[in-house]
């Protein structure tokens, strides 16, 4: 039982990195990824686990209990936030820490999370966006006409985002274009509908694009000591906010 996990160190840390990559891509905090892998590493009786994570990279070095050093770096690309995956990965790590399983089973269970996590599907994404955009328009003081328009515009917005996802356009450009299209639509509609002003409609739809939570968590990262990861997040969030602003403003200037 004891030593056998440490003999296959290279494949072992590959497995750890798979889990870390999965969590990071699904939107887990840097802190959590580091903590999870450190715990799992110790559960598999590695002597030392040195992990450094930033938003798009994980670097992991472990020292086995017979003194050999294994190291690997993984570049992680961004993906859609999927908190169900984070929850499942967390549960897996809890179980592993309590009872370490053989490498093959560990690998299979990570693959299972990556592939077989339930999703709401595309239709639900539309419904969720319409609900959020409508709710936010009401939230910002819009009347019911504005709420209806906001719901309709958010369908266009989501179509835009999904389309740019499929074309693999950079997120910044996708946000800029989506914000532009959204503002154009809103201005076009409010031009003809007397009862609606564009402010609350645009605000309701901007909320779907805005990286407000990324900004908040990044600031928290900086304050709690993950300075590099936090600064990357802040920079990314500010750029995205700027992209939204450029998109909206350029559409407004056209109609001005």
């Amino acid at each position: 039982m004891s030593n056998n996990y440490n003999t296959d160190g290279d494949r072992m840390i590959d497995c750890f990195l798979n889990l870390g990559e999965l969590m990071l891509r699904a939107g887990a905090e840097v802190n959590r990824v580091e903590d999870t892998i450190r715990r799992i590493g110790h559960a598999y009786e590695f002597e030392r686990v040195e992990i450094f994570t930033i938003n798009n990279m994980i670097s992991l070095t472990v020292i086995s209990n017979d003194g050999r050093v294994y190291t690997q770096t993984r570049r992680v690309s961004v993906a859609a936030v999927d908190l169900e995956k984070v929850a499942r990965a967390n549960e897996l790590s809890r179980q592993i820490c309590a009872h370490p399983v053989p490498l093959e089973e560990f690998k299979a269970r990570i693959a299972d999370i990556a592939e077989n996590t339930r999703h709401y599907g595309k239709r639900m994404r539309y419904i969720a966006s319409v609900v959020s955009a409508t709710a936010f328009t009401v939230f910002f003081g819009g009347n019911w006409v504005e709420a209806l328009i906001s719901g309709a515009v958010s369908i266009i917005l989501v179509t835009c985002m999904l389309f740019s996802d499929r074309l693999k356009i950079r997120p910044i450009i996708a946000i800029l274009v989506s914000a532009f299209v959204m503002t154009m639509c809103v201005q076009g509609v409010t031009h003809f509908v007397e009862a609606a002003t564009m402010d609350s409609i645009i605000m309701g739809n901007i909320m779907l694009l805005i990286p407000g939570l990324a900004l908040t968590t990044s600031i928290r990262d900086v304050i709690t000591g993950d300075t590099v990861a936090g600064l990357m997040g802040i920079c990314d969030a500010l750029l995205k906010a700027f992209a939204i602003a450029v998109g909206c403003v350029s559409a407004m200037l056209i109609f001005k």
Binding site: L83, R118, R125, A128
Partner: peptide
């Protein structure tokens, strides 16, 4: 009254984002 409407809207926005973030 506006406050109540705002709170209800906040609930729906939270639900909408939960769905977007794949929470079950």
């Amino acid at each position: 009254m506006t406050y109540l409407v705002q709170i209800i809207a906040a609930v729906f926005s939270a639900i909408g984002f939960s769905l977007l973030f794949n929470i079950h």
